[in-house]
Design a protein around this nucleic acid. Structure first.
Lengths: 237, 237
DNA sequence: AAGTGGTCTAGACCACGGC
DNA sequence: CCGTGGTCTAGACCACTTC
């Protein structure tokens, strides 16, 4: 009996190694224990230890060299930083504004559930905000979070504070990366009204899944006025 | 005895499913056989069948829904690395096609000049290509390079070979990073005709400046059919 | 109740790198 | 030769969804 305690054994192992890397105990290039060593240390089978190393490898934390060992991967150079709207506006010297359009609990957002790796019908917090630069609207942002964990967030002053900072302060959540999907669409009636553009105008759509160290935390879908904003990215070979 | 024959069993299974997807036998949203079915079909153990599905999932080909099944993921071409169109298509097992629309010298592209940090009126090579996936057009790409240095490139077989590889082979150019600007626009008459969409359809526009180690080398403006393709990016905190 | 993916065991053999 | 990662077996239990 291993007393599963909700958290799978392989996640515990991965978490343990991840903490050692983050604390600096393990550094870039250092060898981590072999599958067999980990299996012995944690009292699990080889496949389970392997699972942990494999997951961390696909996450880019480790690098495996066949017949040699497993090593802490070099930290990637990340030009594309994950910043919140509030942070971004402040960095540009603009005054961030947002107007709450919706702030409810819902069980009907199946797409958001699936992006968050939750079963369809899971209760989510939905916060929809109109983003303004001065008095000009430029985006509509809909964020979805699991209600079970973050239900209390609806009681906060969302109009003023960054959602990121609220999450960090209240729930100790640290966001580590985001996967974004960007495409173009055109403004429907509601969008055109809120963003003050003609119906059918081109709209830049960005759908993000923001991940914590272990799990997806927020699904966020945003529609941007394309005449006001574009996305800047630097990529490396 | 399973007669390993060099290729691991899980790769055979993954290859088999991948071919079924590429041939259209399995389509987006279709369920693929369950782990147990695959194990039985291929005469392997559950873990091995699972390995195949897992690998295809992390590669983005499949999507797994716990307690429900495994499904063919929506096909999306992503551009999160600095790779050429040709490289990208090949990596997906698709046949890259492109049709040259324009290949000329010009002195009238002031925007391109300024992006390349050249005086307005500098002579540039302009190569405009229609990109196709199979027979379906999905983007129009216009590349600009300084004529002084790269004028000879017009004599190459641009329809077949990667521009990247030609630059590397003929001029010893290595590209190191790209700055991109992404926004949304709508299809004008020519664009809609070339991309086979209705005029006014949303179009994803990407303008890149590709830099060598020292200088900007290429300015590239591309228009993508937004219904077929979206941009995938991972950002880090 | 049947089926699914998620986790896990306790072993096994192989090819390869480093000593 | 020994240790490593890579592959694989033949089972198992669980939580969950769907019918």
């Amino acid at each position: 009996m291993t007393a599963t305690k909700q958290i799978p054994a392989y996640k515990k192992i991965a978490g343990d190694l991840t903490r050692q890397i983050q604390s600096g105990k393990l550094r870039q290039g250092d060898a981590v224990p072999s599958e067999r060593d980990l299996a012995a240390q944690f009292g699990v089978s080889l496949m389970t230890a392997r699972h942990a190393l494999q997951e961390m490898t696909t996450d880019g934390l480790l690098s495996r060299r066949p017949n040699v060992g497993t090593f802490v991967a070099p930290p990637r150079i990340h030009f594309n930083k994950l910043t919140s709207f509030t942070e971004e506006m402040l960095a540009r010297g603009l005054t961030p504004q947002s107007r709450i359009l919706t702030a409810v609990l819902t069980t009907r957002e199946d797409e958001a559930c699936s992006r968050l790796a939750l079963p369809a019908g899971t209760e989510l917090v939905c916060i929809e905000r109109l983003r303004l630069s001065g008095k000009d609207p430029f985006s509509i942002e809909s964020c979805y979070l699991p209600a079970k964990r973050f239900g209390g967030i609806l009681k906060q002053h969302l109009g003023r504070k960054s959602l990121f900072s609220t999450l960090a302060a209240l729930y100790g959540v640290a966001l580590s990366y985001a996967d974004e999907e960007i495409d173009a669409t055109s403004a429907d009636a509601r969008t055109s009204r809120l963003l003050a553009v003609r119906p059918g105008s081109p709209i830049l759509r960005m759908r993000q899944v923001l991940h914590g160290p272990a799990e997806p935390i927020i699904y966020c879908a945003a529609l941007y006025r394309s005449d006001r904003h574009s996305l800047l990215i630097r990529r490396f070979r």
